[in-house]
Design a binder for these strands. Structure first.
Lengths: 248, 248
DNA sequence: TCGCATTTGTGCGTATTTGCGTGCGTGGGA
DNA sequence: TCCCACGCACGCAAATACGCACAAATGCGA
């Protein structure tokens, strides 16, 4: 049996019954549990099913423990982002104070963060904060006005709070990445929070898929040299050669 | 059976009947009460159901209660809370700056808030903030450390932020209400936020069902005279007579 | 046939889940 | 007043599931 066929078989089994266990699949398809697990991982990444502890369920049913799938589904650069986040998450060190910017990429990053000794995470997004707390992380939220669209906190309170902190490292998303125009965002207020938070961070990382290179959004929040970029996929040659660009 | 399926089964059982006990669930799903309890905890944290003493109820039953014409038997406080929240919500005036404390009663209050001109709501709960934003309210969140259990923000940042504000009116929940011991809460840090926020508010309202009268929690956050209490149900005569108690 | 990449199975250490026992507090009856 | 049933949190131990590394098997092109 072809591996591809096996994947399809798994999907249809899941669709039919709603959920299956790993041993069930292994038995039915005549392979070991390890292989099934690897298959489930593949299918989960492709968002064809949802992998859960013990087996897999259809996406519709999966919203109990994993409610990220909705946002993730709309995402084309999925595999790349996955790798980017895994790489970025490995940069967090024990006993550090870490800033996490709002945005969909950083939200995904949270799922990859390891459980280390004595790490505190600070974020400007209530959504990110909830995810962090759910994962058992020590979490601090900036104050400020809540922007309904992005669930990010902005305004003088957010700025004043972040101004008192000094982070060991931090992760930001960016709508535009260009050598001349630097890192850019669509909103003035959010850009301000990004700018100030970066200013108080020792090791700065922008995590982004390759599609953002060469793009320019209305408001600049940092120079191109101000952060190390962790990216993946078809990075333009011009950027790939730069020494603050890490392609995974 | 997958753990994930079990969680889904619990949710649908709760949805169907409105409420269900732990032994019922354990019997129906073939697991022990311990496991059920852990599941309920998970689901409660995910806000899929509301965990109550002895079992679980649907969120509608516990919070919204818009259209529960059927099965109104259980939860006596439910109807009371509805009336309390409706009365409290009517106290918000246009062009005001309003504080909303964390807690389940104030969460319900949010559903009743009218859409008025130029009102800004400030809260120490990320959950409340999300609901407010969802309803289209201008929303500000205090900063600070996020307590996973209550989704409330505490610590010096929360206190520093609230210290800069002055509210026209505010609404608090209270775990204990007693003439001598005043208003009390179970947690020191949360009590601090309550105390400071009250200090900066002109018109202070505590909203609570009658069961809290005479109860005393570990930490006091205000004197009995410091707020007007909006309540309903079987209020002890001693309290009913007080002029800062409004029974609806 | 050889070399190389990919896939699959196996072993092992770690995490998670689950059931069970214990102790605590509460709220009735006897 | 004592006692018991009940619900619940906590900790422990067994079973299970998991991820990872490495080896074996397989597939494929030269």
């Amino acid at each position: 049996m072809l591996a591809e066929d096996r994947l399809n078989a798994i999907v249809s089994m899941v669709q039919q019954t709603g959920s299956v266990t790993v041993p069930e699949l292994a038995e039915a398809l005549g392979v070991t549990a390890s292989t099934i697990r690897r298959d489930l991982q593949t299918l989960d990444r492709a968002h064809r099913i949802a992998k859960v502890h013990g087996g897999a369920t259809s996406l519709e049913r999966a919203h109990v423990t994993r409610d990220l799938t909705l946002n993730e589904r709309s995402d084309l650069h999925n595999d790349d982002k996955e790798r980017i986040c895994a790489r970025a998450a490995a940069l967090v060190e024990p006993e550090s104070f870490v800033y996490i910017d709002s945005g969909s990429t950083t939200l995904r990053l949270i799922e990859h963060l390891p459980h280390l000794e004595d790490v505190t995470y600070v974020t400007d997004s209530v959504l990110h904060a909830q995810r962090l707390a759910l994962r058992g992380m020590r979490t601090v939220v900036l104050g400020g006005e809540l922007k309904p669209e992005t669930e990010a906190l902005v305004g003088p309170d957010a700025l004043a709070t972040v101004d008192r902190y000094n982070f060991n490292c931090g992760f930001w998303g960016s709508n535009g990445i260009a050598a001349e125009q630097g890192f850019t965002a669509p909103d003035i207020e959010e850009a301000q929070v990004k700018r100030i938070s970066m200013r108080h961070t020792a090791k700065r990382f922008v995590i982004s898929d390759a599609s953002k290179f060469g793009m320019v959004a209305p408001v600049k929040f940092a120079d191109f040299r101000d952060a190390t970029i962790i990216t993946a996929g078809e990075v333009p040659a011009k950027y790939r050669a730069m020494d603050n660009v890490i392609t995974v």
